[in-house]
Amino acid sequence: MSIIIYIAVMAAVTYLIRMIPLTLVRKKIRSRFLNSFLYYIPYTVLSAMTFPAIFYSTGSAVSSAVGTAAALILAYIGMPLIVVALAAAGTAYLAGFVITLF
């Protein structure tokens, strides 16, 4: 299937999600369940996307695992986004380099 169709569908759906409430809906969401669900959804989406895909993200299980560990530790101590991301890539690269020595 053409990539253009995929991109057009993605863009249209994403736009409609943002546009419909901003133009049409004027009432507040009252459902406590729905509000809670919408609150948790970003975190559960990111988590489901990250695991287990992150362990296959560098093409090597060992370097991915090392990068993941670095990201978890640095995120836990509250490092900024870009530091965590670059450290994950840096440690994954180093681990991949070390593996080639053996």
């Binding site: 990250t50 992150i54 993200s57 990068g67 978890l72 995120a75 991301a85 670059l86 890539a89 991949g96």
Partner: peptide
Amino acid sequence: DALGIMLYGMFIAIII
């Protein structure tokens, strides 16, 4: 290859 982990690293930095 190593940079392929970056986006996931950012996701981790957002959720942790």
